[in-house]
Design a protein around this nucleic acid. Sequence first.
DNA 1: CCCTGATTCGC
DNA 2: GCGAATCAGG
Length: 195
Amino acid sequence: MKDSVLTIDSGAQSAGWSEDRVELLKKLWMEGLSASQIAGELGQGVTRNAVIGKVHRLKLSARAKPTNSTPRARPAARPAPRRVASPTASIGSTMAGMNKVRASVSRPQSIGATALAVSNDVEVQMYVAPVAAEIFIPEDKRLSLLQLNEHTCKWPIGDPLTKDFYFCGQHSQDSTPYCEFHSRRAYHQVDKKRR
DNA sequence: CCCTGATTCGC
DNA sequence: GCGAATCAGG
């Protein structure tokens, strides 16, 4: 009798990569499925991180090479990002981008009348100049630094060195340090890319 | 915001 | 070896 020596007979192991699972992983990965899709296919006990981790361990990270050899920027060594304590809500000078406003005039449909093609719909595109003050805060709503709390928008407005400096002060929903309006500003324009 | 893979490192 | 946490980019 030949006994298959497998080290996977530890009973009910969770995400133990049995051979058939690994094969399935390879297959799906080669077919171009994303890690999350493969994870879903393998079962709920497998996360996409697990898949990616296994993929890398198997050294099959590169599945499709169109032309060049993945000039993936290798940041060499990382300063051990483990456990970041403070996300750092750096509030700084974030100028407002341009707001593109697109106003379209709805064309009146010709009812009753026969035919008569409608004229080209009028679209007006204009660029609103980047206003210095992004939003107007009534004076009675303006807060100083000491008036801020967990539920006030901490978006700075004005020059900190002058008297007309204040914080937005509007109610911030969740754990967001900003109100809805400024939260979009803070997280959407800057950061993300362009680092 | 969503998503993707890549990497690191405690377990 | 494993994979969560994180990073980095689209």
